[in-house]
Simulated assay, not measured.
Amino acid sequence: MEIKDLSEIQISLDEKNGFPVKFSSQQKKYDQITKDLVGLFGEIGEFSNLVKKINLKLEHGEKYDLNREQIEPLMREELADSFIYIIRIAAILDMDLETEVIKKIKTNEKRYSKLRDHE
Rank of each mutant, 00 (worst) to 15 (best):
Q70S: 10
L56K: 05
E109Q: 13
L93A: 07
R111E: 09
E2K: 13
H118E: 14
M1W: 09
A80F: 11
E78Y: 00
K29N: 11
D36T: 08
E78F: 00
G61T: 07
Q32G: 05
D5V: 09
R76G: 06
L115G: 08
A91G: 02
L115I: 05
S82Y: 00
I92R: 03
A80E: 08
D65Y: 08
K114N: 14
D81P: 02
E72I: 14
T34M: 10
K114R: 15
A91I: 01
D81T: 00
G18C: 04
G45R: 00
F23L: 03
K104S: 12
Y112V: 02
A80V: 10
E119S: 08
N67D: 15
N55H: 14
N49E: 09
N108P: 02
Q27R: 10
S113E: 15
P73R: 01
Y64D: 02
F19C: 08
D81C: 01
D117Q: 11
E2P: 03
D117F: 13
E8S: 11
N49Q: 14
E59C: 08
V51M: 09
I3C: 03
R111D: 04
E69A: 13
S25H: 04
L37A: 02
N17H: 09
E109I: 04
I71C: 03
I33M: 06
T34R: 15
D117R: 14
R88A: 04
S12N: 10
D14L: 12
I92V: 08
D117M: 12
I102Y: 06
L97F: 06
G42Q: 03
D81K: 00
L40Y: 01
I84W: 06
Y64W: 06
K22V: 14
H60A: 07
M95N: 11
Y64I: 05
L50G: 07
A80Y: 07
E78M: 02
N108R: 08
I105F: 12
K57Y: 04
D31I: 11
K57N: 05
E62S: 15
S7V: 13
L6M: 13
E8C: 08
A91F: 02
G45L: 00
I87K: 06
E46I: 06
N49D: 10
M95Q: 11
I71G: 05
E69M: 08
L40K: 01
L13R: 12
Q27Y: 07
I105W: 07
R68P: 13
I3E: 06
A90V: 02
S113Q: 15
H60N: 14
P20Q: 04
F19A: 12
F47S: 08
L56C: 01
I44G: 00
R68L: 13
E109L: 07
G18M: 06
L58K: 15
P20G: 00
I84D: 05
